[in-house]
Write a protein that binds this DNA or RNA. Structure first.
Lengths: 120, 120
DNA sequence: TTCATATTTCTAGATTTATCGAAATACTTC
DNA sequence: GAAGTATTTCGATAAATCTAGAAATATGAA
């Protein structure tokens, strides 16, 4: 993930309502939630909700799909993983000082060969 | 980490200059960088730099210490880990659908007893 | 004390973001 | 096609954020 994409993701999550929306979608799981359900759950007016969803979508944190009359939203876990990867690399890279921060990819990806966690 | 603290951290990092500042501090390692060095590295005017540093400090992402005439800044890795933990929990909690997202804490913390990574 | 350096606070203007009612669009059913 | 539901776009206002010059504060050196 590039820096500019990470900024978009961070920005998307760095707002109370949007973080809340994302958490709701994570809790909703694969099925996701319709925009209307999100409106009910949050109490946000339609226009406000749409704006926040737009920012989450543009950042790639949320995907959506029209199902008949409703639009179903889902959390995009891949993008969250990419963000975590970015932060982890930018937290740890180049320093042995970054003690407690092991590469997320080591946990995340299928392979987990070289665990480089340096024991201080 | 509480939601409100995560918001502060996300907000602190969700800005081009501040993310850049944080990365510089991570690269600088334990020694950190003086405010003046950060000013040189980024080209930001003093007042602007101070404001950004203030936001990073308030979020706990950066700590600082006066050393004589200069103020030395350092990245606070613990806070970054706490943020990663928060995001991981809020990315994965309650869903088996969150495939690729293993608990960062399993990689991060000293103990790594129960690796719950569910093989899909 | 006086001077020089490092950093912050003050202040104000410019830009961006958040909010939301009203109108518009998209889709389903009758 | 008409009517109803779901969602977005438009447009305007309020609030927050970014920016940076100038003045103030803090420290060390002469």
């Amino acid at each position: 993930m590039k820096s500019i994409d990470a900024l978009a993701c961070l920005n998307a999550l760095a707002q109370e309502h949007r973080l809340n929306l994302y958490r709701l979608l994570v809790q909703a799981g694969d099925e996701g939630m319709a925009v209307g359900e999100l409106a009910d759950a949050t109490g946000l007016p339609g226009a406000t909700l749409t704006n926040h969803l737009h920012i989450l979508r543009r950042a790639g944190m949320v995907s959506d799909e029209r199902q008949g009359r409703v639009i179903q939203c889902r959390a995009n876990y891949e993008q969250m993983n990419a963000l975590l990867g970015f932060l982890t690399e930018n937290c740890c890279a180049g320093t042995s000082a970054a003690v407690a921060c092991a590469p997320v990819s080591a946990c995340v990806s299928p392979r987990r060969k070289s665990r480089k966690a340096p024991s201080p």
